[in-house]
């Protein structure tokens, strides 16, 4: 990949929880405008990689570059200002706050009121169901609706890169398709995406490029289509 087409790059990053190394030297690249997926089984370290990117987990060695910024020692609140929004595992909504307040929290770093209104409308365009629920406490929404608020909240920050941690978890098959469609639509508008998924098939169908994580290391990477046809990937992640 040419340098100026790369949005995000990690060089040999390592993350430790107490003494245990969860990420053992991972190097990734995300091209501008692309969807990249991280797949892997439970405990492989997918969420940990995302948390390193958004600043929630400090890395012990390696480098993370976003555009021209080295971001691996920045705090989460500064990383989101540069344009990386993280939809964490388990959604992590502010459940006692209303849907509207959650979306407003997503726009916390922004000052442009006019644009903000437009983006709020865009969120309701993606998720029309939320509009009727703006004054409802987020904790009282259904799982699917909560996932929509979580994605909507992240979009409100106007990200260049969206980190999605298992957006299809707990959704009905129909809703998974819906979310997939919306992810593609968001990407078409120019937002790059890192998609972490248990649902490897959906992820690889959506993504341009994929990384397979196994116990904290990249076991395999490649164009998403080629991974879909890879025998190892088929056996281990696509159910044969």
């Amino acid at each position: 990949m040419e340098e100026n087409k790369i949005l995000l790059k990690t060089k040999d990053i390592r993350v430790r929880y107490n003494k245990v190394e969860a990420i053992k030297g991972v190097s990734l690249e995300v091209a501008k405008g692309s969807i990249v997926t991280l797949i892997g089984s439970n405990g492989a370290g997918k969420s940990t990689v995302l948390k390193a990117l958004s600043g929630l987990n400090p890395i012990v060695s390696g480098e993370i570059w976003f555009l021209n910024h080295r971001i691996d020692s920045l705090l989460p609140q500064d990383i989101v200002k540069l344009g990386i929004s993280h939809v964490p595992e388990g959604k992590r909504l502010f459940s006692r706050m209303t849907v509207l307040e959650n979306l407003k929290m997503g726009a916390y770093i922004r000052k442009d009121k006019e644009e903000l209104k437009k983006d709020m409308d865009e969120v309701f365009h993606y998720f029309p169901k939320l509009k009727a629920r703006i004054n409802q406490a987020a904790g009282t929404l259904s799982g699917g609706e909560q996932q929509m608020v979580a994605i909507g909240r992240a979009l409100m920050a106007e990200p260049k890169l969206l980190l999605l941690d298992e957006p299809s978890l707990g959704l009905s098959p129909l809703l998974v398709l819906e979310v997939a469609k919306i992810i593609r639509e968001i990407n078409k508008k120019g937002v790059s995406i890192i998609l972490v998924e248990q649902n490897a098939k959906m992820a690889l169908q959506l993504a341009h490029f994929g990384y397979v994580l196994e116990t904290g290391k990249v076991a395999l990477d490649g164009i998403a289509d080629s991974l879909l046809n890879n025998t190892h990937v088929r056996d281990a992640y696509l159910g044969g």
Binding site: L56, P76, Q77, P88, M105, Y108
Partner: peptide, 24 residues
């Protein structure tokens, strides 16, 4: 107020608040 919203957000989930750009 915005700052009140941030206070409530931190009270619920400090990490999630930081991810929205709140200076904890």
């Amino acid at each position: 107020s915005k700052i009140g919203c941030a206070i409530r957000a931190i009270a619920e989930d400090r990490e999630a608040a930081a991810l929205q750009g709140v200076n904890i």
